[in-house]
């Protein structure tokens, strides 16, 4: 907690979220991200207009947990779908349909399946958004005017000011040494 608040003040004091390096080539940004990671920076992030597998790996991000929410929601859907049908058709409102047993599992399968898919899909969608902390109306990176090209044709690498190795002068020089087209401050 203490470290966290200290970091916050560091960012807030300087009014700087981090340093953003701009690239116009996917290979260059991947190479730069790898070097930055190897240089010991950990509070880094990269931005690209389309998914680049190598880029997330280069900043040290390998495994996401979306599949976990999908699995959990899917199980919930399956159990929920079964419980709904069993409780309503066999317990609360027992209904004899063509002499079938009250627990007529084969007839319950379609709805169990649909409930599983429905909830698992919500798991994928909501899980992805929640872990990405979206919707997020404000984010400091948008303070950088050139960042509007991150959704178009430019690639960005950001070293955040709360990285322990961050230093205004040295990190900037380091990023410039990586072949960035431009290195700019991002206001927090």
């Amino acid at each position: 907690m203490k470290a966290h608040s200290k970091n916050m003040t560091k960012q807030e004091e300087s009014g700087i979220y981090g340093l953003m390096a701009e690239f116009d080539d996917p290979s260059a940004v991947v190479a730069a991200a790898r070097r930055t990671y190897e240089a010991g920076y950990r509070r880094i992030n990269a931005y690209s207009p389309y998914p680049i597998e190598e880029l997330s790996a280069a900043i040290g991000y390998h495994k996401d947990l979306v599949s976990m929410t999908v699995f959990a929601f899917g199980i919930l859907g399956a159990l929920g779908g079964f419980a709904l049908q069993y409780w309503t058709s066999a317990i609360d409102y027992p209904l004899n349909v063509g002499g079938r047993p009250l627990l007529s599992l084969p007839s319950f399968i379609p709805i169990i399946f649909e409930c599983t898919v429905l909830l698992a899909s919500f798991g994928a969608f909501i899980g992805m958004l929640a872990m990405n902390r979206l919707p997020q109306p404000y984010h400091p990176v948008f303070n950088l005017p050139s960042f509007s090209r991150a959704s178009h044709d430019r690639f960005f690498l950001c070293v955040k000011a709360d990285d322990p190795n961050y230093s205004e002068v040295e990190t900037r020089a380091f990023l410039q040494g990586l072949g960035a087209k431009e290195v700019s401050d991002v206001e927090s």
């Binding site: 992030n45 680049i52 991000y61 872990m131 959704s151």
Partner: peptide, 16 residues
């Protein structure tokens, strides 16, 4: 919804 092409976001996005 504030999408900014974050590499970690893309990773989760692709999985989802």
């Amino acid at each position: 919804m504030g999408w900014r092409g974050d590499a970690r976001h893309w990773h989760r996005y692709e999985s989802a």
